[in-house]
Design a protein around this nucleic acid. Sequence first.
DNA 1: TTCATTAATGAATATTGTGTTCGATAAAAG
DNA 2: CTTTTATCGAACACAATATTCATTAATGAA
Lengths: 242, 242
Amino acid sequence: MLRKLFTTEQNRPFCHAKRGCMKEKKEDRRISRTRRLMHEALMSLIVEKGYESITVQDILNRADVGRSTFYAHYRDKHELLFSSFELLRTLFEQQQQTIHTSRLTGRDPEVYFILELFRHTGQHHKLYKAIAGKQSGEMILKYLHRYLYKMLIGPNTELMKKRKAPPVPIEITTHFLVSTLLSLITWWLDNNMPYSPEKMDEIFRIMTTPTIEAAFDRKTTTHPAGSIKAFYNLFVESDCCP
Amino acid sequence: MLRKLFTTEQNRPFCHAKRGCMKEKKEDRRISRTRRLMHEALMSLIVEKGYESITVQDILNRADVGRSTFYAHYRDKHELLFSSFELLRTLFEQQQQTIHTSRLTGRDPEVYFILELFRHTGQHHKLYKAIAGKQSGEMILKYLHRYLYKMLIGPNTELMKKRKAPPVPIEITTHFLVSTLLSLITWWLDNNMPYSPEKMDEIFRIMTTPTIEAAFDRKTTTHPAGSIKAFYNLFVESDCCP
DNA sequence: TTCATTAATGAATATTGTGTTCGATAAAAG
DNA sequence: CTTTTATCGAACACAATATTCATTAATGAA
């Protein structure tokens, strides 16, 4: 029975990571092999001809798997793409976790978030280019936007609302920050990463810091560095589960 | 013959505007009527159920035209959407033209570009929401990005490159500015335009002005207003034809 | 008004892509 | 070795796309 595949995994077909899975069930080699093949097929196809124009048949040909096998794993190609993204996301969050715990002493870890994001993106640039580059689909970009929004700013909106009457409404500022970050990442990927992650991190700060100062009430902070620090403090510490 | 429709128009099926068309050929009323019906159908359908999920059959039902009629005009629904955007674009450019010629004396017209863009967007917000809002397809957003890029900055890149060694590469700054503008517009539309075009224009300046100053070499301009002015001077005067 | 032109019609049809089913096969686990 | 189960592959139903062509009717020009 094909459906058995789902019944054994109990409605969580994409639990690739160890996050939350106490029992490290050894996955059937055939399953991981098939999934890997399909992921690789999708990624290479996106780079070649763009996400939208890919058909399931293309994926089957490239991955060399049967039609029924595909639908045993994913409902459609969107779900396949989504699960690719989930793999990267959990990987990044694990790396974040280890970095933060190993840096208990030393300078504030919050400040490194953007840098780590660029590093991680560069590390897996082929995958990220497929997912977030020119050729990707709208769906995943919107999802990324929501994800970064929640990850960076969403849960801490209350903190930001305490400031009285900023010249620019807060929703716009947050929307703007996420858009800027996302546009920097996609630009970087689509232009074959001409600068280092460190440089991109620096650029992000140069471009957003003055805006943050201008958008929030400048008078509440005497030292400009204060507002920047306050903003970066909002970054991590969100238990976001989209 | 249905194909006659295209042979008479000689491979430029969407020459609705006068731009470049010297001979004002009176278009058959049936053609413009059919196209109008299909445009209206598409726009209302996008607002209702989102662009991606619309089928050609939906458009046919809503517009009440025959299947073959649709394909006589447009290759697919993408082309229909694209031609809708073209109508708005030429309308905006005509408005810009008349505004600029009527304001020969007075303050610099370049500065009004963003404001006029917001006003025009607000004026036709239903159409723009369909085209650029949450429900639209990604295709047109990417096209809008390219269009604004060319319109605002692209042709004048040489001018900007004369500045020596700015702290942020110019390509990134331009990309950033277009992304900011686009994200402001889509945010504004998706949130039912809670602020006036004037306020949005102000917000755009508040958010981008400090970045422009930071991204370009601050030391080359003594007066902050100078660099802003220089930037806005780059805006208009482009004969962009995407 | 008349008349040649041509856009629109609608029904038929080929084509493509999606998603499902099921018995047979082969690989993995125990 | 035996049981389990993921994969195969071919068939199928279905939905949507895109094309065709003879017929109808609206249009613009005389």
